[in-house]
Design a protein around this nucleic acid. Structure first.
Lengths: 211, 211, 211, 211
DNA sequence: AATGAATGAGAATTCATTCAT
DNA sequence: AATGAATGAATTCTCATTCAT
């Protein structure tokens, strides 16, 4: 059973493994692991149901593989996005940029993440955090902020809290968009997202900058 | 079928309807609607499976009832929490306080919310937003900020963005805690939560305050 | 899930658990565990397929339960059948009698046994042997023969081998009947079985008796 | 499809047909026809699943072919083993010898036989019996015994019953070994088998001999 | 002769829901 | 209000078999 075969990227002329992966990603994002239906995935992928078992051997395993590949790809992009020589300002800007891009390009991501965050047994969380930590970005950001504090350019803030604040302001909106859009009566989400980058970085910098 | 009998949250001397409600809340928070099992709920509640149908007529309906009651209770508490005469500072502090309390007292809440946020068909989101809007809190907060801007005490910020930032900094941490705790290497969550209130309000106020 | 509920014997007015047990016994004897079909058992028992899972939770478990109950019943009858004060002659006669009766009354037995004998993982063998050993019959028979040898009434035979020979002559025919009937051109099996008891005991006694 | 290509049992330099045959024999002995898996056979044989269909066209056919070849080989050895001029004593000895040898050399045999004996639709039984009958051995043995009775050297026994007894004492032990070893507490099976030949013939001869 | 991928027809198992009592 | 038994409609998973190369 070819469970972890290589994948080729070109979208056209997909192998059936790839077709399954794609269909499964959507289904899992839409319905979650428990709500997903193998039948539906097979139909969407245009393959025989048994094919899914041929390639992935079980629903649970399919979920894992799909999420793994997906998260792996995403995280790869995040890792590259931040250069070491960035200043606080450019660093934050870059990060913000990347998050927005990712979420826009891969709308399945926030939904998968939401479900996994709710799931005590989920392993995606652990995987993502490991990748993020390994990427060195969180550490780098902390260093950046710490240096700013030490150099007197930033107030004497709790760096960890500040970083958490920055992250939640960024990703948090995307996660809670369905709710926030209604509560805050946001009609034009696209525009709001565009404005948001600047607003977030602006609020954050003003919030931490020494006066 | 008596679908909306009186309810008390206290633990002792529960009616079987209450026992079901309690067990179901946990199950739904743990597994989501699709992953929840009537059997498990019945067992956890110590009642017969048929009893659930006697009281709630279907799984979907059970979910709705349970979530409704739960959300209703929660929102009631939020609504009361913010007095009209608050200043920006005290208003934010109060809000923050309430969120933290809620999430700590009702750990099922963030998980239910996470799942609903992931679910395009979910109706809990609509319900919550309606309640929140009706409570007038978001509008009040906006007014508060707008006045601050007008009076020159606050910078010329985008008020809506700022409010979204405040909300995501608050709730966002609780929603993403499983991930953030790992990425940011937060060992003592209790302490972090305690510090957080101040850190958030502090960052926010400094971020918006005119200089 | 009521997995080991008591059973009541009257054949009419059977509970569905009993109906399942009966149907399953036949199916398993006919087709073996791997060849048996839950669907067929349900139909034969006149119950819904899900009922089988309600009562037995899995095919494997059903098999085990059914075989266990069955073997337990059978062995109970064998255990009682041999009185302690028997002489070699009457003892052997009694044993022979019992085997023949059992096999005639419970034709499923030899077939279940055949399949289990072929199955390295089978647990029925262990169970039967334990029951037989506990019944004390094999030991008693050995003692009987040993005494005969010591008293000079029997030749100096290997008692264990002799006993094995006796047992195989008895049960062996029933197990191998489909083959032996053809090879030996046995047309009237009933008559052959009737004659057999005497023939076996006669051969055995003459074979072991001192001359 | 080349269904009856030459075969050699020796291990080295096997054609893939032979590899399949060997693997299938083990699988069928282990699990029976219904329990056998084409996948497992292919893996064990180190060939692709489709290869099996190329050579044998179906699972049932594979079973038949494999069992046929196997039984054919075995029976060939039995047929040769008994010379016409044997006395009762030597004839029995020879037979016994052969059975023991066969079962020792081809441990799959008793297990295949057991399963076939349990299967009402099995055709192996018919095939074996036909071969045995054609070999003339049973008839020869009957004649031998009959002559002994007529000549007064043997008691006036039922010859058919006696022969059945002899056969069951021989093969019966091998078939029921898993059970008998436990019940009779046989620790050293090898030694027991060695002793058994003599014990069986001895018991039998003494059982039938005129006194 | 040989293989990896693909398939259709089952087969076991699950689960929300209902029924009789 | 309460329960154990029962059910139908999925749903996951399996497996013999075939296809394209």
């Amino acid at each position: 059973m070819p469970d972890s075969t290589p994948r080729r990227y070109p979208d056209r002329n997909k192998t059936s493994r790839e077709k399954i992966t794609t269909a499964a990603l959507t289904e899992f994002a839409d319905k979650g692991l428990a709500g997903a239906r193998i039948d539906r995935i097979a139909t969407a992928a245009g393959v025989n149901k048994a094919m899914i078992y041929y390639h992935f051997s079980s629903k649970d395993n399919l979920y894992e593989q799909v999420v793994d590949e997906f998260v792996g790809d995403l995280m790869g992009r995040i890792s590259q996005a931040i250069s070491d020589k960035a200043t606080v300002e450019t660093g934050l800007m870059q990060l913000d940029e990347v998050y927005t891009e990712l979420v826009t390009e891969y709308p399945e991501f926030p939904r998968l993440l939401l479900r996994e965050l709710a799931d005590p047994g989920g392993r995606m969380i652990g995987r993502i955090s490991r990748i993020l930590v390994k990427s060195g970005n969180p550490a780098r950001m902390q260093r950046l902020l710490r240096r700013g504090v030490a150099g007197g350019r930033l107030r004497r803030i709790n760096v960890r809290q500040a970083l958490v604040s920055f992250l939640t302001m960024n990703i948090g909106y995307f996660l809670m968009a369905p709710l926030l859009d209604k509560v805050m009566d946001i009609k034009d989400r696209k525009r709001f997202v565009k404005e948001r980058k600047k607003a977030v970085v602006d609020l954050f910098l003003n919030g931490v900058r020494a006066r």
